[in-house]
Nucleic acid binder design. Structure first.
Lengths: 218, 218
DNA sequence: CATATATTCAATTAATTACTTGAATACAAT
DNA sequence: ATTGTATTCAAGTAATTAATTGAATATATG
């Protein structure tokens, strides 16, 4: 009887594991972490069909990781709580530390572009308050609009070149994106350095900043 | 190119999710969290065949959650790091907060036996140092032997009755087990209260105590 | 009321996973 | 060298999951 209870409990916990067991769902969660999104928007940004996106979202909702509400024709999905950010970060951290293939991918695609230590959130807050840095948000405009680090400028990567003349060449630039492995932040930093500017990345992404209770602008 | 990288990265993270997507593997992880175990021991305590146990362990090892070493004929498995304890606790916490069925199971099987707030670790350490409590470890003897809270007495549930006469009836008793949902701790507390004794549970289990860097006896 | 839009559902197909069984491998004891 | 013990591997079977397609449902607009 009590072994049946324990097994039933583990089966429920396994639902969370199942929700995280496919790359598409992890990607959808990263998108939703930037702010609530509709099914159509999620399908577009992920490159999945609407039906497939919807099915993955049902899976995530039934596992308790997201919730939804309807506004007119559209259904909007949001994370169930900050604990889902923590869950994603914990899975990511464990994979980084213990799966050699992750190390290899990160070294091949990310570290080659920026092998400096990223800037801790609290440090960025301090420097931003002192007016010592320019903060660059390289996410798509709609994610920026949903919420961003106060004072951050939204410059998608392809517009960075044209934006350079607006920058104070003496000031340090800190770029951030959706999370710690978002290549856009790495690319931005590499491009800025190519131009002789001083640039670094924030240690993770906007969801972690927000979860830390730091100020948010929208 | 960078979308392929991101997808490859998410696929690797998904390996961690897959490792956690079956009740049997979660249970094996909870057993291993108590201390390193051999395949044969894990098969016995989980009720799975040795071959099936071994297959699940390969899965866990390839996902980076456990490591193994061989001593003579036997292969011993241990967790890859304390971050795996954190991962399990995070999955458990998310499931508890966001899956209604978990709430139902916990209420039906656990809260009915003990609905008092469990005791925080630091509080137990303090009271134990002052000699104010009796600490009861209700795990099987081999898990106790592998490591336990200093001063804890190992009394498996079926021996509790016979052990009662050894107790200082005036002193509070704190019981702990493998984790926060281990029914043995709940049963022990219920049985002790039935006898008029003052009993509580520790807030989680031995792995969390150890991860917190608190003193460990073996 | 009819049509358009957005989303979900259900059925089908293909791929993946879990368990079982028997064989293979590695190490220890005789 | 042979036998025993412990574990892993491989193949087969059954169950589950992911994507696709078309239908169904809900809401908004004309």
């Amino acid at each position: 009887m009590s072994t049946n209870f324990k097994h039933a409990l583990f089966s429920q916990f396994a639902r969370v594991g199942k929700a995280l067991s496919h790359a598409n769902r992890l990607e959808l969660l990263e998108f939703i972490a930037q702010g609530e999104r509709s099914v159509d928007e999620l399908a577009t940004v992920s490159g999945l069909t609407v039906a497939n996106t919807s099915q993955h979202l049902q899976h995530l909702r039934q596992a308790g990781l997201v919730t939804s509400h309807k506004e007119g024709l559209k259904v909007y999905y949001q994370l169930s709580g900050d604990d889902v950010i923590t869950l994603l970060d914990t899975v990511r951290g464990v994979a980084e530390r213990h799966i050699a293939e992750v190390d290899k991918l990160v070294n091949t695609y990310l570290t080659v572009k920026d092998n400096l230590e990223p800037l801790p959130r609290k440090e960025l807050l301090k420097r931003a308050k002192q007016g010592l840095v320019t903060v660059l948000d390289v996410r798509p405009a709609e994610e920026y609009a949903a919420g961003h680090v106060p004072g951050a400028v939204n410059v998608p990567l392809k517009e960075l070149e044209g934006y350079l003349k607006n920058l104070d060449a003496q000031q340090e630039i800190v770029a951030y994106c959706r999370g710690p492995h978002c290549i856009l932040a790495f690319d931005a930093v590499a491009a800025l350095r190519d131009k002789g500017l001083t640039a670094r990345r924030l240690e993770d992404g906007f969801p972690e900043w927000k979860r830390a209770g730091l100020p948010v602008e929208s």
